[in-house]
Computed example of a mutant assay.
Amino acid sequence: MRTLLLALLALAAPGALAQSAVTVTVANPLDLARPDAVAEVPWATLAAALPGLGPDAVRVVDPATEAEVVSQPLDLDADGTPEHLLILTGLWPNETRAFRVEAVAPDSAYAPRVHAMHDDYRDDMAWESDRIAWRTYGKGLWEADEFQPLVSSGIDVWPKRTRDLITERWYEKGHDAYHVDSGEGADFYSVGTTLGAGGTGVWADGDLVRPENFDDWRILADGPIRAVFEMDYQPFDAGGQRVAERKRITIDAGRHLYRQESTYTADGPVPAVVGLVDRPEGVVASTRDGADWTWLALWGPVERKNGGHGELGTAVMVPSAALGRIAREGRHYLATVDATPGVPVVSYVGAGWTASGDVDAVGDWWALLDAEAARLGAPIVVTVGE
């Protein structure tokens, strides 16, 4: 009897409870709301407290309501052990919230709010949040009989006016059909051989030099909260220096901006650029210098082809400390950043369309970018087990 009693007491001890659940606290240090905030919780810290934790055995619960909270184990190196657990929440200004992480499977699958895909026929990469969609071009496009060969590493915007994920469906409709708005939005944006919205290149000998279409790709994560993929660009000549680029793109639920990291291989420093193509429809350009992040943005009418309508904003955002200059060069507005080979150059790229219901005028677009810059400068504070 005494042995049984001791065993029951051991099960009731605080240490035993710590093996079944752990508290994660997330705090918003800003006097600014954070809808669709993504908290990154170190997996190793959680695993140390929850021995039964696994990619298929993790659940997040709001203890105030006992409702499940959308989460995503993030295993970018595909070694079976995630680097982070992502928790999707909303935070009011200066709010702190607590969640309970359990080492059990979720009750059900979570509806994805992001997606990354490769279209095999065109050799495109496409990615989207529930707010906006994007695509860029691979070398296989040169071999597709239906299209003129396009040599371009530019970024295309697919403005949409639905919260649904549309990239798979639009590719199924076909090239001509997704250029016409049938109620969800359409590809009204022209890229051609330009940088488009947020393409990267090198400033060499007073000229913009860009890689050709991507040569290889891999999807590292695909929702429900975050999608991540990489593309490789083969070496190109930039002022007598051979430069290769690996680009990693990350997009989160609820966001108009995606994160891109360009890592260059070269013999010396690389004068990297990220930029926006000017549009012929009467575009307004603006910049805002921030303590942590500086943005460059355009705003103007959507190209009036195939029923194009509304106004479209595009933007790039770079760390203020790394920014060299912002300038209009030829057809582009460019932000320059001196890159060290092997060290990622980080920037954010965004777009917003009036028909989506998120922005109604140019002031809304500037305000959205100011808010995103503020959030990037003051990350969510995550505490485990306190």
Rank of each mutant, 00 (worst) to 15 (best):
A47S: 15
M317S: 11
G192Y: 10
V273K: 07
R288L: 11
A27K: 10
T162K: 05
A109G: 06
G80F: 09
A47I: 01
L150Q: 12
I249Y: 03
G310Y: 13
E40L: 14
D75F: 08
G310N: 11
K173R: 13
G201Y: 07
D205K: 11
A327N: 01
G206D: 14
T194D: 14
A27F: 04
G352R: 11
Y110F: 15
H256K: 01
G282D: 07
D31M: 02
H179I: 01
W353N: 06
A133K: 07
K305P: 00
G352T: 02
L85A: 03
R161F: 01
R242W: 07
D232W: 11
A12C: 09
A144V: 09
L150A: 08
R34M: 06
L17Y: 12
Q241S: 04
T96P: 02
S20D: 15
R279K: 09
A266M: 11
L85K: 04
V24T: 04
V202F: 08
G90C: 05
V202A: 07
L276F: 01
A253D: 05
A18G: 01
N213Y: 02
L30C: 05
G199D: 12
P106R: 00
A33I: 00
E303C: 01
G290F: 07
W134Q: 07
I225S: 07
A335Q: 14
I166K: 12
A315N: 05
V191A: 12
T287Y: 08
G350Q: 13
K160P: 03
D364A: 08
S347M: 02
R131H: 04
